[in-house]
Amino acid sequence: MTSHKNTPNRLKEIFRVVLSIAIILVGITHFTEPAQFVKIMPPQLPYPTELVYISGFFEILGGIGLLIPFVSVAAAWGLIALFVAVFPANINQAINSIPIEGIPHHPWLYWARLPFQAVLIAWAWWYTQKPDEQLGAFKE
């Protein structure tokens, strides 16, 4: 019989897997569709293609790390840093209304996406908290 006390922790672990899978998939697209990400890179940054590959690599690494108990807190902090680091590209996309294939081209959508970065940061931050109570789904 499942206790209601474990429900918040179970939900937290489900959301961990969702974030991990989502960020891994986004990281993969940095390698399969790099031109889409290069387009939104601020022109002031050097080596935009290389930066896209580097960010994709760290997205994949962070997504995997979030699922490994020994490194999950470090991975969460790494994802927070990554979400902050890629924010200038999101701002550049919104300011210059740069379309990306597969996403409806509506300038308001690019602006609406900006606050979502704070949601991603908060989501990753959640996994830096009380690590001794986390990853219950992986114990036993």
Rank of each mutant, 00 (worst) to 15 (best):
W108S: 12
K130Q: 15
K39V: 12
A75H: 08
I64F: 14
G27P: 06
I40K: 02
T2D: 13
L11G: 09
W126E: 02
P8Q: 05
I28E: 06
Q129A: 09
N96W: 00
Y53F: 14
A76Q: 08
E140H: 06
A75E: 07
L51F: 11
I40P: 04
E101F: 12
F116G: 01
L11N: 13
V18G: 09
I54Q: 05
T2K: 13
E133F: 03
H105P: 00
P88H: 07
I14T: 12
E140R: 08
F57S: 13
F57T: 10
V38E: 13
Y127I: 00
P43R: 12
G136P: 05
A75M: 03
N90I: 03
F70C: 02
F37S: 09
A22R: 04
A81D: 04
I98Y: 04
A112S: 01
L51Q: 15
E133L: 10
I91E: 05
V52M: 15
W125F: 08
R16G: 02
L135C: 06
G136A: 09
V73N: 05
F70L: 09
D132H: 10
P48A: 06
L19K: 04
V71Q: 06
F15T: 08
F70I: 12
F31R: 05
F15W: 09
L11C: 13
F116N: 02
R113V: 00
H105I: 01
H4R: 11
A22C: 00
P34G: 09
G62R: 07
E101A: 12
K139V: 15
Q93M: 12
I28A: 08
P8S: 08
F116S: 08
A81P: 09
N6R: 11
N6L: 12
P107R: 01
A124I: 00
N9L: 15
V86I: 14
Q117M: 01
I121W: 08
M1G: 13
F87L: 07
A137D: 14
L135M: 13
Q129V: 14
E140P: 01
L79M: 11
A75V: 00
K139G: 09
I98C: 04
K5T: 10
F87P: 01
H30R: 11
L25C: 12
A122Y: 09
A137F: 15
I60W: 09
L135V: 03
G27E: 02
Q44N: 11
A75F: 00
E59V: 04
G62P: 08
Y127M: 01
I80A: 07
A124S: 15
Q36W: 13
I23C: 07
K12T: 09
M41A: 15
K139M: 10
I24C: 10
L67M: 15
V119Q: 05
P107S: 02
I24V: 14
M1K: 11
W111A: 02
P88A: 04
N96A: 06
I80Y: 07
A85G: 12
I68D: 01
Q117G: 00
M41L: 09
P107N: 03
A122Q: 03
V52F: 08
D132Q: 10
A118T: 03
I121S: 04
S55P: 07
A89V: 14
P115V: 01
P131Y: 05
